[in-house]
Amino acid sequence: MSILLKAGCNVVSLQRTETPQLTALAGKHPGALVISKGDVAKEEDNKAAVDVALQSFGRLDALILNAGTLHPLGAVSSLSGPRLDELKSLFDVNFFALVAILAHAIPHLRAREGKEGLKEGEPAGRVVLVSSGAATGGVTGWAAYNASKAAMNSLGRTLGNEEPDIVTVAVRPGTPDTVMQQKIRELGAAHMSPSDHARFTGLHERGELLPPHEPGGVLAGLALDAPRELSGDFVNWNDEDKALRWRRKV
Rank of each mutant, 00 (worst) to 15 (best):
L5F: 00
A7N: 10
A7E: 10
G8M: 12
L14W: 02
E18W: 05
L22W: 02
L22C: 07
T23C: 03
T23V: 13
G27M: 07
H29W: 01
H29M: 07
G38H: 05
G38Q: 08
D45A: 08
N46C: 15
N46Q: 14
K47L: 12
A48G: 09
D51S: 12
D51R: 07
L54D: 03
L54Y: 02
Q55A: 12
Q55D: 05
S56W: 00
F57E: 00
R59K: 11
R59P: 03
L60Y: 02
L60W: 01
D61R: 06
D61M: 01
A67W: 04
S77L: 11
S78K: 15
L79M: 14
G81Q: 09
P82I: 15
K88I: 07
F91K: 02
F91R: 06
V93E: 01
N94A: 08
L98V: 12
L98K: 11
V99Q: 15
A100D: 09
H104N: 12
H104G: 06
I106P: 04
H108Y: 07
R112S: 12
E113K: 12
E113V: 14
E113D: 15
K115M: 08
K115L: 09
G117C: 10
K119C: 09
E120N: 11
E122C: 11
E122V: 13
E122T: 12
V128H: 06
V130I: 14
A134L: 00
A134S: 05
A134H: 06
A134T: 04
A135Y: 00
T136I: 15
T136D: 09
G138W: 00
T140D: 09
A143K: 03
N146P: 01
S148K: 01
S148Q: 00
S154K: 11
L159F: 13
I166C: 05
I166N: 05
I166Q: 06
V167N: 09
V169M: 08
V169L: 09
V171P: 03
R172W: 04
R172V: 14
R172I: 14
G174E: 08
T178Y: 02
V179S: 13
M180P: 02
Q181Y: 04
Q182H: 13
I184K: 06
R185K: 13
E186D: 13
A190Q: 14
S193V: 12
H197P: 00
R199W: 04
G202W: 08
H204K: 14
G207C: 10
L209W: 01
L209P: 00
L209I: 04
H213D: 15
P215Y: 02
G216M: 08
G216Y: 01
G217V: 15
V218S: 10
V218F: 05
D225K: 15
P227E: 10
R228V: 13
E229R: 14
E229A: 15
V235C: 07
N236K: 14
D241V: 15
D241A: 14
K242F: 03
A243S: 10
L244F: 13
R245P: 02
R248T: 10
K249W: 10
V250I: 13
